[in-house]
Simulated scan of single mutants.
Amino acid sequence: MTLHVRPAGPLDAGPLADLLNEVIAEGGTTAITTPVTRDYIAERMASDPRAIWHLAEDDAGDVLGFQWVDPHPEHGADCAQIATFARVGRTGLGTGSALFEKTRAAALASGYRWINAEIRADNLGGLAYYGSRGFEDYGRIEGYRMANGQVVDKVLKRYDLD
């Protein structure tokens, strides 16, 4: 299988929503707790001109994962926040590595200086993924209440682009 990474656009919103809904239904890795729609993803993509979206697909065009960065609402224009999602049952294929290679380069070219990741403390796979990319711990949010009422801690990690 060959992995292809490319920028994602509005026509990809449906397949990205489907993948994210699989992750949400599986539970335990994302702070997003309610299903999303194609329109939600399309609106999120268009919400900021500095948003950068990539998807990874196989030779058949099946989406294996996606990643986005957009400006962090509290850390200023130099900081992007990141989200990464891989198809349930299809992790460990190099999808995350390939996505981050493209995202990192695009974020640097777009003027970001660092990337912020907020990972649920109980998401061991997510913590390992971001750690293996070179993200370093810098803080913690304790007692974060998700939309479904569940309370989790979040680990804050940063990746300096320069």
Rank of each mutant, 00 (worst) to 15 (best):
D48F: 03
R44C: 05
P73C: 08
R44M: 13
G14H: 10
K157E: 08
D70K: 15
H72A: 13
G143D: 10
R133M: 14
R87I: 05
F85M: 12
S132C: 03
G89V: 01
D12W: 00
A25M: 06
A60I: 00
A98Q: 04
A117Q: 04
G126C: 07
R44N: 15
D58P: 01
H75S: 11
T2M: 02
D122G: 13
W68K: 08
G14P: 04
V23T: 08
N21Q: 09
T2W: 00
I24G: 04
H72Y: 14
P15S: 04
Y138Q: 07
V63Y: 01
N21F: 09
A77L: 14
D59L: 04
M146K: 05
G92N: 14
T37P: 01
A107E: 04
H75W: 13
G139C: 05
V5P: 02
R145S: 12
K157T: 08
A51I: 05
L20W: 10
R133T: 05
Y138H: 13
V88W: 10
F66T: 09
A105E: 13
E57D: 05
A60H: 09
G9V: 06
A8L: 02
Y40F: 15
P35N: 09
V5D: 01
V23R: 02
P35G: 06
Y130T: 10
E118D: 12
E26Y: 09
S97M: 07
T37S: 13
P15A: 06
V5E: 03
R140Q: 10
L108I: 09
M146Y: 00
M146S: 01
V151Q: 12
L108H: 11
A51Y: 03
H4Q: 09
D78F: 11
R113T: 12
P73K: 10
H72T: 10
E118H: 13
P71H: 12
A98T: 03
Y130C: 05
L161W: 10
